[in-house]
Design a protein around this nucleic acid. Sequence first.
DNA 1: CTAACATCTATAGTTGCTGTAGATGCAAGC
DNA 2: GCTTGCATCTACAGCAACTATAGATGTTAG
Lengths: 145, 145
Amino acid sequence: MFTIGRLARRTGAKVQTIRYYEEIGLLSKPPRSEGNQRLYGEQEVDRLAFIRHARELGFSLAAVRDLLSLSDSPGQSCEAADVIARCQLEAVEARIARLQSLKRELERMIEQCQGGKIADCRVIEVLSDHNQCLTENHTDAAVHS
Amino acid sequence: MFTIGRLARRTGAKVQTIRYYEEIGLLSKPPRSEGNQRLYGEQEVDRLAFIRHARELGFSLAAVRDLLSLSDSPGQSCEAADVIARCQLEAVEARIARLQSLKRELERMIEQCQGGKIADCRVIEVLSDHNQCLTENHTDAAVHS
DNA sequence: CTAACATCTATAGTTGCTGTAGATGCAAGC
DNA sequence: GCTTGCATCTACAGCAACTATAGATGTTAG
């Protein structure tokens, strides 16, 4: 059995993050030492590392919670886990596509910025130009959520 | 002169977001009507659309603030704007690279999940397997910020 | 004139943590 | 046995960048 600091060092999570996960119920309340310090075992290392890895893959804490509850019932179909992973994949693909169009736009901006004065700066201008495009598209008539 | 709702509709921003931008000083306090309602003109449409477009391009509000102050002094060199844009481009490229490796990992996970039981589920397993990789890399000796 | 909607202020909530303060616990050195 | 210094404890505040709510007013169409 070891303390929270050791658990943190072994998983790469911060101490406060571990206490936060306990608070929101992702980790169960561990036994305490005589001096009221949390005591953890190997099981907690695994569970926390699982959480951290899923987080690094971009899963939300809600998704992590679902995945954990799935892995706690190993006899059932893993269809639900598959659905979560596919959802995540779709979200990642959408983010990539979006970022790539941003990248192209930024590259165009930078390319056209030749160290001149701000009055002629493409970076500022592109942002302003798209204002035009925005104001054209977002008229009073258009409905936006 | 028009009210906040019209400004919101014309720029695609939410009413609360506009008030929030005013609160944090991105938009200046507009004149009010007799009934204490905010009144805006075309200038505010431009400025807000500029902000929204920059935000959509992934610039932080701090970066937007810098870009706005730059565009307020059009006689100066646009080097600073270029630096901000280049920074943003780098960040976008890093995010794309990261997301693409996540995508590959997720695809591997899903591919190997054949609708079996959770005990054999690759989605869960991959997350757990990487736990191993995590616990190997993050030993007590390793220092993590 | 009234109903329905817009706007007002102020405040709390969201996600996923991170940082702080001030009080204890604990292990090592003298 | 005592001090020093770090680790841990609780509780709460703060971050980004909004979003949502409550309850009070303003405004406008029929």
